[in-house]
Design a protein around this nucleic acid. Structure first.
Lengths: 329, 329
DNA sequence: CTGAAAGCGCTTACAG
DNA sequence: CTGAAAGCGCTTACAG
């Protein structure tokens, strides 16, 4: 069985060096080139990646650290990354942390140890330990979802998305609004979205706003929304993610109330189910696929020594469906 | 910087061979062992995987071929696989085919070329070309989701799940039922589920059944269900997956009808949203995580030369929520 | 333009 | 129980 570069060399009547040079785009006479190409085509020879990597001290793997696999946003992002990486002959290597901060840090080190060429980190937070890890491994890293001035980042325009969505619901006459957000250790979702909302709220009159915090888990959102509805009975639940919004919708229905007639709901993300639930959820859409594609593109350019914009902010789009009532006529 | 086995050998005052032997559980005097361990602990030495793989002509990667990443079932399965694999120091390497048959075959070959130790194939179909590929690569393969007599498989009990779910809806008085399934090239979902349903239907009296086919895409299900409702107006839509059921629910609502009062709906899979939509979807739950965990466990045992049951059929569970009306009293 | 040789970091008979 | 040596399959100065 034909397996190694020596076999090819022998069959082509040249040396290993010449075959290797041809494979790597070096000086080879057109005569030798032709013979080698014929043999390779006939045998279907493929270089052994381990041997190549052993020499190169680096692989064609790109590590992608993801907080969870069973999330629409994560999945779409991965698909975008994978697509771009394939174009450039890189292999995506996924490290799933299952929402563990600890495993996020570990993955940074262990991917580096595995000599990945680069890392894309779908970040939930950029702690001091994250920074230590990123700085100490000598591997290019691109952050997604969170911004940090020291690193290459691809983020979403959380602030303006929230601002515009908030203006939209206020314009539709909502005054008594409950904001259902997440922890502020998450700058993008916890801080920025709330800040955008707050700005719009500050520009309007006669508002009655209450702020609440829950987790990213639907179950928690169901409970939190149930409490809010009982206690403050807002006309609208402004939820920091579509998952939270889905949980909120469940709560509204469970109490025998109608959406949007009794209570309106909005979210962020535009997951695939957001259009399918009834009523359709009004939300701020982020193009996760495109963001992943962009992040991978940047990383590839970095690896090729090209220069890259430090921060790329992906656009959003307000998707108007049926979950927000119009209170003013 | 300490990097190679030679460095460790030098620091411990022994030869590379001895260090390697210690690392691989060979004969080493307790004296040498101690010195080596001290040095390794102090330096944090980690063997270079490329060099190891180059010798071993195999990696610790397990390839997982998945039809799509943005599916709840796929994601949960991957998490289960990853968990088990980590326990045994294997690395999951995901090949996403984006629902392309072609890329499924290619992935089989390309993963083999990358010298993965084994492959788990989340199969949508086992065609002749699949078989050729599986047989020609000399890598152990475990099939998931579809059964094939020649290969190791982990499947779901599609037939009995459908049978029991069908008996349930019939027992609740439904007589005019539309079955909304998928192509029969998919044995598990297309053939088995329909067969289970058909058996239950055959055991009952006075039924008025119509059979319809759609794709796995929610949008197609919405259209298909809309047509069925207009044309035959069944009392229940029996959908072969939860995604189809979600699309069907959307259709029912869009026509101003109520679930379950006007039309009932059931599905298969119990995705995370199935509990969250309103009304909650009655469905047959499959434990994807557990199945993935089991498949990975089997593959690991295969790699260790242990013997493994060829076919494992995972159990299901009927989850009764609010989407099925009770028509008889 | 080409080939012999060394080396990437590890493992594994083999001789001692 | 240990170490020198060969070899896994490739790449890359180097001399020609």
């Amino acid at each position: 069985m034909i397996k190694t570069i020596s076999d090819i060399a022998k069959l082509a009547g040249v040396s290993k060096s010449t075959v290797s040079r041809h494979l790597n785009g070096g000086y080879v006479s057109s005569e030798a080139k032709e013979k080698i190409e014929t043999v390779i085509a006939r045998t279907g020879y493929e270089p052994n990646a381990f041997a190549q990597n052993l020499k190169a001290k680096q692989s064609n793997f790109i590590g992608v650290i993801v907080p969870r696999l069973d999330s629409y946003a994560a999945a779409r992002t991965l698909i975008g990354i994978d697509e771009k990486l394939k174009q450039h002959n890189y292999q995506m290597l996924i490290a799933n942390t299952g929402l563990s901060r600890e495993r996020e840090i570990e993955s940074l080190y262990s991917l580096a140890k595995q000599k990945v060429a680069g890392i894309i980190l779908l970040a939930t937070e950029v702690s001091a330990r994250h920074q230590t890890a990123i700085d100490s491994i000598k591997v290019p890293v691109v952050l997604m979802g969170q911004e940090h001035s020291k690193y290459y980042c691809v983020t979403y325009d959380d602030f303006n998305a929230a601002y515009e969505l908030a203006r939209y619901v206020i314009a539709r006459g909502h005054r008594k609004i409950a904001y259902l957000g997440v922890t502020e250790t998450d700058i993008a979702v916890g801080v920025r979205r709330k800040a955008g909302f707050r700005k719009a709220a500050g520009e309007a009159e006669g508002l009655d706003i209450s702020y609440h915090t829950t987790s990213f888990a639907i179950e928690d959102a169901i409970d939190a929304a149930a409490r809010i509805i009982r206690e403050t009975r807002p006309s609208l639940l402004f939820c920091a993610t579509d998952n939270i919004a889905l949980g909120a919708m469940k709560s509204v229905f469970s109490q025998g109330l109608k959406i949007p007639a009794d209570i309106s709901v909005v979210g962020f993300g535009d997951y695939n189910v957001s259009a399918v639930v009834h009523p359709g959820l009004t939300t701020a859409r982020f193009d996760y696929y495109q963001a992943g594609f962009t992040a991978a593109g940047n990383l590839v350019r970095l690896l090729q020594g090209e220069t890259v914009q430090r921060l790329i902010v992906c656009d959003y789009q307000i998707i108007e469906r049926e979950s927000v009532d119009k209170l003013n006529f």
